[in-house]
Computed example of a mutant assay.
Amino acid sequence: MDRLQSMRVFAKVVEMGSFAKAAESLDLSATVVTRNLADLETHLGTRLLNRTTRKLSLTESGQVYLARVRQILADIDDADAEVSSQSRNATGTLRIYCHPAFGQAQLGRLLPLYARAMPDVVLDVTLSDHGVDLVQEGFDIGIFLGVQKFDSSMVARKLATSNLILCASPDYLARRGEPSAPADLSSHDCLNFAYEQVRHHWPIQWDDQHVNVPIHSRMISNNGGLLRDASLAGMGVAIRSSFTIEDDLTSGRLVQLLKGHHLGQTSVMMVYPSRRLMSWKTRTFIDFLAARFPRPECDPWLADAEVTGPAGPSCWANR
């Protein structure tokens, strides 16, 4: 027995005062309406309606039950209307996971723009470089970097491609000189990520050549923000994703080195559980980010870069 359906039938029969009229109103057959009410009475173990050939009347149990049924049905209709309204309007809490490198460098300027456009959405943002299960941990959307792994069942959309670049502060370059070739890096102080594969060598490519340049690590850290601060302070040469130092390059606080040499790229991925029955708050945020990164194969953070490789200079020129 579908108890909720039987409740609706019972309430409608009382409202219309007739099984036939209730059946017509609900677009059901009279047989189905009669069966629903009979099943409900059997389930409850009591008669709800007194039936005669001329009229229907509620029993005492029916009067008590009708009052509760009407309240239950009203609450269900209210809940349906509320959720349906939220699905058509950007409201509620939007839970966002993001890798800290992208979050600290980019989300701080993007989220206020979205918040102004969607004032009824509460933003709940988690920055972490640890892997997460978006569904299990209740996130609506995640922003991952190319080195991170996520469940293959997720919907993934590339937002942008970021180039890895060499940079140093003007103060450091004034003291130590600017490298003119990859081999020159071996005589510089290098600020390095704590990954064993790049701790002693930096892979650099230009034209058709590829070389692992031996380097001396002046500082090693697993935190990109700390390495950026160290490079700003003049401690040495760092490799950074372009999106993390966009403002530093524009302002001249950092200088890009060895332009035309390619150190690799990282993808910025937007990931979410499903396209089906997506909430409006999630859909609007996806569209918001996609509108700001319309050419995912290009690097939107290096307007003046002379970078060779998959995301060469022509990509920016066409933006």
Rank of each mutant, 00 (worst) to 15 (best):
L44H: 05
G92M: 00
I245R: 03
Q136A: 15
V13S: 05
R275W: 03
M1P: 14
S221C: 09
N89I: 04
G92W: 00
N318I: 08
E178S: 14
R175E: 13
W316P: 00
D207A: 14
H188Y: 04
E24R: 15
A22H: 02
Q205L: 05
D189R: 13
A290D: 10
M269N: 12
R70W: 02
A23V: 06
H130F: 10
A67G: 02
S267K: 13
L107H: 07
L48V: 04
A38F: 11
G234V: 11
P182T: 02
A194H: 13
S84E: 10
G236S: 07
S29C: 00
Q148S: 13
G17T: 07
M1K: 13
P310F: 02
E246T: 13
G92Y: 00
D151S: 11
I239Y: 07
V255P: 03
S18P: 10
H261M: 05
S29P: 02
L277Y: 10
V33E: 00
L173I: 07
A101H: 06
H99M: 05
L123P: 06
R295Y: 10
Y195G: 06
D171G: 12
D287K: 14
V13L: 02
Q256K: 11
V83P: 02
T244N: 12
L263P: 09
D124M: 05
R70Y: 01
Q205W: 04
A23E: 06
A11N: 03
R8F: 04
E178Q: 14
V213T: 09
